[in-house]
């Protein structure tokens, strides 16, 4: 009986040898009308900087699609500042910017700042952001298991009187490394509660962790969620394709302000 049983399993072998189930195919894309792509974050203590690129047909060459004729304007409290086209790379942060001006805005929570981008093709992108205040991290704690691995718990208090959105990031050693954990969350299920974000047993004694809690605008939450959904849809047959929900009008992108609390801890 055992022999019969194993004979019945022989076909499994065929299955294992026949598994070349991915192949390159040709897909003809319709002509794409390029749109301006804008990324601009207002951050306390940082100069005004923006990236203006454009979207390209998926199979175009992987060049950086610069738009040198784009003009960027930022307006705060009736004062409009023009950011000239001046590409440079911030070596420390590893970030690339196309437009900048060595000027900082004196921002307070509740302030409204607007963005306008124009180019010679007549493309016109606008956006608005309302400055939010940071939400303090109340505690960063960790606990070891018997294998000497620790989990991390970051806690903060959600404001019950407002609809809040958060972005949580954990970096190892410094911000120059890509984040180990990064997610966005709303207070839909936790309104007014003390919220804790946990982790798996990922950490050891001596690890230096940079924990950041961004208090973000809804439009930033929607944009990041849609970016994540769109990326997941490419390669996941079960996912519904998702369009990018931009915070700007007339193009693609995000204009928002970054308000965060950041703590650096050494696991001991």
């Amino acid at each position: 009986m055992k022999a019969v049983f194993y004979t019945l399993l022989l076909p499994l072998l065929f299955l294992l040898v026949a598994c070349d189930l991915e192949q390159e195919v040709e897909v003809k894309l319709p002509p794409h009308d390029s749109q301006l792509v804008v990324e601009c974050y207002l951050e306390p203590g940082k100069n005004l900087r923006a990236v203006v690129l454009e979207s390209v047909s998926y199979f175009n060459e992987p060049d950086l699609p610069l738009v040198p004729d784009a003009e960027v304007f930022i307006t705060h409290q009736g004062k409009t500042i023009k950011l000239p086209f001046s590409p440079y790379q911030d070596q420390k942060a590893g970030k690339y910017f196309t437009h900048r001006r060595n000027e900082q805005l004196n921002l307070s929570p509740g302030d409204v700042v607007t963005l306008e981008v124009r180019d010679r093709k007549g493309r016109h992108v606008t956006g608005t952001t309302t400055i939010v205040g940071p939400v303090p991290i109340e505690a960063v704690e960790w606990k070891f298991n018997d294998k000497e691995k620790a989990y991390l718990l970051t806690s903060f208090q959600d404001d019950p009187n407002a609809e809040n959105f958060y972005r949580y990031m954990v970096h190892r050693d410094s911000l120059t490394n890509d984040s180990e954990r990064d997610f966005v969350s709303s207070d839909r299920l936790t309104n007014g509660k003390r919220v804790s974000y946990g982790s798996a047993y990922d950490y050891e004694r001596g690890d230096t962790l940079v924990v950041s809690l961004f208090h973000i605008e809804k439009q930033y939450y929607d944009f990041l969620s849609s970016v994540s959904d769109a990326r997941n849809a490419n390669g996941n047959p079960f996912a519904q394709p998702s369009r990018i929900v931009s915070s700007v009008q007339g193009g693609i992108g995000i204009f928002t302000n970054l308000s965060y609390d950041r703590k650096t801890v050494i696991i001991d």
Binding site: V27, L29, P30, H32, S34, Q35, V37, E39, Y41, V51, L53, E54, S55, V56, S57, Y58, L64, A93, G94, K95, Y96, M169, H171, L175, T176, N177, D178, S179, D182, V210, S212, V227, A230, A233, N234, P241, I252, L258
Partner: peptide
């Protein structure tokens, strides 16, 4: 549904493009 276009997203400091 397939994407027709793409764009580069740098994200904030501490994130890869």
């Amino acid at each position: 549904s397939l994407p027709v276009a793409r764009f580069a997203f740098q994200d904030v400091e501490g994130k890869s493009a």
